[in-house]
Design a protein around this nucleic acid. Structure first.
Lengths: 220, 220
DNA sequence: TACAAAAGTTAGATAAGCCTAACTTGATTT
DNA sequence: AAATCAAGTTAGGCTTATCTAACTTTTGTA
């Protein structure tokens, strides 16, 4: 099915919003806010996507993606994340620069391109933000990502992403040399303010605030 | 100036057509044929591009690109050709596959991406078809490309492209191991049928037909 | 439970690109 | 130089995607 960029963007938004809802659905207004349009535009598009069997939707009710819709979304995310890896690994774009350009690249239509790119990048499993890259067949292994603040004491974990992606935070991370793949062990939690004493695999240790630890995502 | 993909495609078409006209201009109908639209659509767009100062145009007359228009065109061509190199060199796309995907990639908007890509590719001078890649500042060194059949005897030259890009021809080239960069010396011309005896830098020599030699482009 | 506020939809406009049909201009040919 | 034909333009319509303003449904709470 040949979709316009606009349609793809709606699908992507619906996917993102419904994935983080316990009932796997979302609403007109949420979509409008996310893609910066007004609710009537969303209403129109939902009718269109319903006809195309990409969403399940009845007016005044909430929306869900159909199986097809979900597949479409995952393919777009796959392309997005592969391009992010390319930009980061090969062209030395920083964490916070990759997203914007990948937003454009994700709409390029060529299966061959996607597959060749994936191969060229060495079949990466995660993008530069630590989000998992779906396979060509749409399998998406959901990494059980925790906040650093949720880690058990004494267990070594690995940074796979951030929650806050403001440039202040990213810059701070860069400054203290924490990036994707950095190995961290939580040594102690200070009861007073919940800050953590952590050690990096390189040997040295630091104290980080609760706020910091809440915004660093890790897998054990 | 932020242009739509459609506008960019018109500019590119006008550039290509006017470059191959002795008076550096082109016509409504020529444009319509090239980009597969009808003349009225072209008329509309020409009015629009005139307002944006990208073309010089009076109705019922022929069109020329302004200086700005030409710069825009060259930047698109630059991106197109860099992506072609990427697809060919890094992702192993064949000569004839690169164009279609590059048509999409050329519209990605990010100066940084273009510059980084160029660097990553090692500042290539030619695309996989042997066409020269404009510099970031828009300089386009027009390679003086000749047909192999026009080469002087005894001079070694380098394959930079083909005129005929049919898959039969490309396949034949592949078969006899001739590609971009292959070094060739013309040893002798047979008066009877104008076929050429040539030697490849690897040592071995062959006879190629006039038709073959007319379709291989070289620079000395 | 009723009713106001929030959420969502319809109606009617606008802009970009495209089209066909009808008209105008300019070039060619006698 | 006039007539004809090709080239080009205008008029009016269609589609996609957007908007504002006005209306309807749902919800949440007094």
């Amino acid at each position: 099915m040949q979709l316009s960029q606009t349609e793809e963007n709606y699908i992507k938004a619906i996917y993102a919003l419904s994935e983080r809802s316990p009932s796997f659905d979302t609403s007109t207004n949420e979509i409008a806010v996310r893609i910066n349009t007004k609710p009537p535009s969303v209403s129109d598009m939902l009718r269109k996507l319903t006809v195309k069997k990409l969403v399940t939707y009845q007016k005044y009710k909430r929306v869900t993606l159909t199986k097809t819709g979900r597949q479409v979304a995952i393919q777009i995310i796959r392309k997005h994340r592969l391009w992010e890896v390319f930009l980061h690994d090969k062209l030395q774009f920083t964490w916070d620069e990759v997203h914007e350009v990948a937003e454009q690249l994700e709409h390029i239509q060529s299966e061959k391109l996607t597959e060749r790119l994936e191969k060229y990048l060495g079949y990466p499993k995660y993008d530069p933000h630590g989000d998992p890259i779906p396979s060509a067949t749409g399998e998406l292994k959901e990494a059980k990502r925790l906040m650093l603040s949720e880690m058990e004491m004494g267990v070594t974990c690995q940074v796979v992403g951030v929650k806050d992606s403001s440039s202040e935070f990213l810059q701070y991370l860069h400054q203290i040399d924490v990036g994707i793949g950095t190995k961290i062990k939580v040594l102690e939690q200070i009861a007073f303010d919940h800050s953590l004493i952590v050690s990096f695999k390189k040997g040295h240790q630091t104290t980080v605030s609760k706020k910091f630890a809440d915004n660093v995502l890790v897998t054990s």
